[in-house]
Simulated assay, not measured.
Amino acid sequence: MTYSHLDPAMHHRVAWNAGKTVGTKRPLTQKQIWAIRFFLDREERLRDRALFDLAIDSKLRGCDLVKLKIGDLVAGSDIRNRALVIQQKTGRPVQFEITADARASLATWLLRRGGPADGYVFPSRLDHRRPMSTRQYARLLDELVTAVGLRREDYGTHSMRRTKAAMIYRATGNLRAVQILLGHTKIENTVRYLGVDVEDALLLAERTEI
């Protein structure tokens, strides 16, 4: 439901973002990633460890991540090294890598989870025929960052999408590669997404000696 700013009801209506931190969410650091992994392993949360690892590797939006099916990630009895999905937002395909840590945690989770190739990797707790909701995914991330002493207001589902992309950019300065990995149609979107500014450009230039 929407309201006009002229409606009397709006005079006492509190803004949806009052008291909240809005804007770009921070990516996680390597130290924070390992802290969260340690927490998940200690608590023996197989599903959440697999979801966390895959979220970082895939760099997918939450809506695409939760809808992954077992057949998207498994070939025969093995977890794929790479996978491809069609993005819900753009309708365009995007590929991503699945590294050794993610393959190991996924294999452990899928062995426990079972199910057919057309089943969701992370099904809803209420109905296994449906995927986990993006809201449930967001709540889980709130819990994880809080568990390792971070402010949940500073992090969100896009933190997971940005984490590895930001690391790749800092290591290489290759915006085009990051654009492809994120599935952005325009490099300007990648620049805004990573928060690339003049300082970043100058640091890259200073590293280059001629």
Rank of each mutant, 00 (worst) to 15 (best):
I210S: 04
G173A: 06
S58I: 06
A138H: 08
K67S: 08
L110I: 08
T190H: 14
G149A: 11
A75M: 12
K186P: 12
K25I: 07
K164R: 12
R61S: 01
R82P: 01
L150S: 02
C63T: 09
S124W: 00
T99H: 15
I86W: 14
N189F: 02
R13C: 03
G91H: 09
I36V: 15
V121C: 07
V85T: 12
C63S: 14
T21Q: 15
V94S: 04
H184E: 13
A117V: 08
R103S: 10
L40Q: 13
G149S: 09
F52P: 02
H158S: 09
T108H: 08
V178N: 02
A107L: 14
L140I: 08
Q95E: 14
I210V: 11
A9H: 10
E44T: 02
W109T: 01
L73P: 13
G156I: 04
L73F: 10
I70E: 13
G149E: 12
L54A: 06
P27L: 01
I79M: 15
R103E: 07
A18F: 15
T146W: 09
D127E: 03
A147G: 03
R26Q: 09
T21L: 15
I33V: 15
M167Y: 02
A15V: 10
T2C: 03
T172G: 01
D101L: 10
G115F: 07
G115L: 13
A18G: 00
D41L: 11
A205S: 10
G183A: 10
H11R: 10
L40S: 11
D197E: 13
F39M: 11
A102F: 11
D48F: 07
D154Y: 07
P123W: 02
I86P: 02
V178P: 02
W34K: 13
Q87C: 12
D57C: 15
V196W: 02
L60Q: 07
P8E: 06
Y169G: 08
K20T: 14
I168L: 05
V14K: 13
A83W: 03
D127T: 06
E44C: 09
T157A: 00
R170D: 04
F96S: 09
L40C: 12
P93S: 00
A50M: 11
N174R: 05
D154S: 06
V196E: 06
L106C: 11
G23N: 13
D118R: 12
T190V: 11
P27G: 01
L140R: 06
A18T: 15
V14P: 01
T99E: 06
A15W: 10
P123S: 03
W109C: 03
L60E: 03
A138R: 07
L84D: 04
A83G: 04
T108R: 11
D64G: 06
L126N: 13
T157F: 07
E143G: 02
H11C: 05
E188I: 11
L60Y: 04
I70G: 04
R125P: 03
A102G: 11
